[in-house]
Design a protein around this nucleic acid. Structure first.
Lengths: 344, 344
DNA sequence: AAGTGCATAGAAAACGATTTAGCAAATCAA
DNA sequence: TTGATTTGCTAAATCGTTTTCTATGCACTT
């Protein structure tokens, strides 16, 4: 048995030219129906599989999408949030006939730059899930004319699929407000401009509800920094005018706070209400369940995939900058108590 | 500026033939040093990037590895265990100049079979992280002559990178035994033959230490089935001769047990000791920290990557079946109490 | 009968690399 | 000097497609 059958082999067997076979395989209409059928039958019998390299070399369409996913502390594949988005993205593009290849992010000296990798592999588009946006090589990538979709980061010319940071935080504020909370501490995550919306939502909500914004109620903590979450919680507890509720930048930091307070003998939510952010799995297995904003990672992946492929297949959309906002949802949990001052 | 520079362009500029340029770029030695240097300089100046499709088409070496990762309930990208292995695998192969592409596992009707995808994309090898091993298309893949590395599953001809189920379980038994436990319940995970080693280790350990093996102490529970873990825990608690320790099939199921018992007012580990398996992140954030076997996912990924590339680059090893056993480690936690009958 | 249009097929030129075979010049051995 | 070997380079074939252009036959007009 021949190692790999090519158009040429089929052409010889069917007594037609290579071009005719090619037309039959691509279901073109400048070929007679019976010939097309016969050729396709023979191809099936011989287990013909087209050669990706040859067809991409000629056609310049790779149907392959590069995924950029850097593994800085806590992000990347190993963070459930990104893994979920990637998984949903993968399903979406696979359904539409595209393939996913990771960009090489290793430190090996002869590694190509991101831009070079895209040229090399002929990516039709790039999905940037998380990256160091200050790196020169990523700026070069963004400056190229490749279709690109980025998650939670605004880039001129490209699509940004982002959580609704402002809206979600607003929902969360409303949720705790409805349960009577007025003295609400907020631990803000990171300095990245994308999540500024949350801080904004906090302040606007407080102002709109005539609540004072104490600067002692506002902290900053890196995402996923459990230890720091624990330390800041102690700081909050030491305040003379203790809040009744603490909002954390993400679920992991919230658990840091939860554990700290429980170890100090406090009962959550009786003695203090808390809420997290993200909605990763373990909020459902710690006790009490942590109230959180569940980000709709499934929708983010689907939208990212479809937007990217649309830009690939309909280049007229290519340079429209665009932000796709995906709403999160309150996941109620049990960590926010209903308290006395409830007034609605 | 020309869209993409090719060997031909460089050849024209340097007044040499295409073959000479090719040799210079591939750092061959049948070319004079000064010409090589000049060509490389010009290539750099023009931002020459080789064309993957062309070179793979001709050379048949894609330097691309297909990754098969099916997303059955709870496995796949979204399970931390697999994400960790994949991440470590990715780093390893990227360091060695290989690229990773996912096999398409979608349900779309015109999806190629795994084997066809490998032919189509010219994968040099395949990494099977998790899959439905009963599917015909995967059997066909395993029957091919591609270099393949599989995780935790024994396949004739191929490499199996597996956790040391027997040894790890034995270590865990020794750990609880050393802390005085004699009546040890064991909830076994799944029916897959690969983890039979754990059951074996449990029985052998009990026998070797002259402990009776009560069948009421042995249960089966699907991996990652939190609810079932909870239910089985209740069954164990109802036993007339309650064990002092319960070993769970994985950490998530263990937390199911933990929460159930805590809700029933029990103190863990005072009233019951428990241990999990896997060592995924949240064992460190629940209270008490769950004692577990931390699987060495980093090492698994590294070994899988290196074995696979070795088989690709040194085909003489290709058909040696091989099992690479990777030891896990006790992660002590706080969920196993030291109890009275301690005797060493 | 000549011209027009259409449907079908094939020849051949790409795409951009690798690789083999061969040639000329340079080096070496005798 | 002659013959053999080495060195440095090129021409050309090849990998397996896609695509453009041309050719042929046939049916229709007029």
């Amino acid at each position: 048995m021949k190692e790999n059958v090519s158009l040429k082999d089929i052409a010889r067997i069917c007594n037609v030219s290579i071009s005719t076979v090619s037309k039959a395989m691509n279901d073109r209409n400048d070929i007679s129906a019976d010939k097309k059928e016969e050729i396709q039958r023979v191809a099936r019998e011989l287990n013909y599989v087209p050669n990706y390299m040859a067809s991409t070399l000629k056609s310049k369409r790779s149907k392959n999408i590069g995924v950029l996913l850097s593994e800085k502390t806590g992000t990347g594949l190993m963070h459930e949030h990104f893994a979920r988005i990637l998984n949903s993205f993968k399903e979406t593009v696979e359904e539409r006939g595209y393939t996913i290849t990771f960009l090489n992010i290793s430190n090996s000296p002869n590694r190509l730059s991101f831009m070079e990798q895209c040229k090399y592999m002929n990516f039709d588009g790039v999905f940037v899930l998380c990256a160091d946006y200050s790196a020169p090589e990523i700026k070069e990538l963004f400056a190229s004319d490749l279709p690109i979709v980025v998650v939670d980061h605004e880039i001129p010319k490209h699509v940004n699929v982002a959580s609704n940071h402002y809206g979600d935080m607003n929902r969360l504020m409303q949720f705790v407000y409805d349960r009577g909370h007025r003295r609400i501490a907020y631990i803000h995550g990171g300095m990245s401009e994308v999540t500024q919306g949350r801080m904004e939502a906090y302040k606007v909500f407080m102002r709109e509800h005539q609540l004072p914004i104490y600067k002692e109620y506002i902290y900053t903590c890196p995402y996923r920094d459990y230890e720091r979450g624990s330390a800041l919680t102690k700081a909050v507890l030491a305040l003379p005018n203790r809040p009744t509720c603490i909002l954390y930048p993400d679920d992991l930091v919230a658990v840091g706070g939860l554990n700290t307070m429980q170890e100090a003998g406090m009962n959550i939510p009786k003695d203090m209400s808390i809420a997290g952010y993200d909605g990763i799995n373990f909020v459902n297995i710690v006790r009490p369940r942590i109230t959180t904003i569940r980000q709709d990672t499934v929708s983010m992946g689907i939208q990212a995939g479809n937007k990217l492929i649309n830009r690939i297949e309909f280049p007229e959309e290519k340079y429209k900058p665009e932000t796709v906002v995906v709403d999160g949802m309150i996941e109620p949990g049990e960590s926010v108590a209903v308290i006395g001052s409830r007034n609605n």
